[in-house]
Amino acid sequence: MIVGNRKPLEEILEMVKPYKKILLLGCNECITVCAAGGEREVGVLASELKLSRAKNGGEIEIKEHTLERQCDFEYIDQIKPFVDDYEAIVSMACGAGIQYTAERFPGKVVLPAINTTFLGVTLEQGVWSERCQGCGECILHLTGGICPVARCAKSLFNGPCGGSSNGKCEVNPDTPCAWQLIVDRLKELGQLENYEKIIEVKNWSTSRDGGPRTRVREDLRIPKDS
């Protein structure tokens, strides 16, 4: 899933300073699962904003609304009937959702309440961890199912570096060294000979470095003129 963090209240307060009527828009997908911008978090943020405003002698009208997704126009369009009643939308979706909501309402101010961080998994309740950077050319078959691009601080293809210590990454003692994990896994799979193969220079053009990416499935498209 896409994982994100809610921005600090102070930062959101600063963004909404000029507005008295805002639409606070949650998203029911990934950002709900990682407890950052779902219905519950929309409620919490709305209360916090109202309380702060009131404390400073001001007022703010907030409509709380959570969409099934903010990455599809068919869901975003559900706010059409009332969106114009508000001066600004504060989106609690991931970066994709925030942008797509803004794209649907070009004349409307759309503000981000979430810092989108990574593609990851739930380690345990309340803990999420990065797994993928969407580089567009997966090499997990070579690395025992553990991604060095996303999980090594230096994205080394032929790691580990000299900073691997007791299974941990030198950058953060709470982070496992990806290459320790890879070596352990290759050993378990009886594939340690894979480690001896040099992984060659990566093609980054399939990643963000090649420019913004679009995926097209012609067979699924609906012809424009029909």
């Binding site: 994205s155 080394l156 293809f157 032929n158």
Partner: peptide, 14 residues
């Protein structure tokens, strides 16, 4: 921002 376009072993080979 770090680069790490290539790693040290790939650098040797380069």
């Amino acid at each position: 921002k770090n680069v790490y376009d290539i790693d040290s072993i790939q650098l040797i080979h380069t």
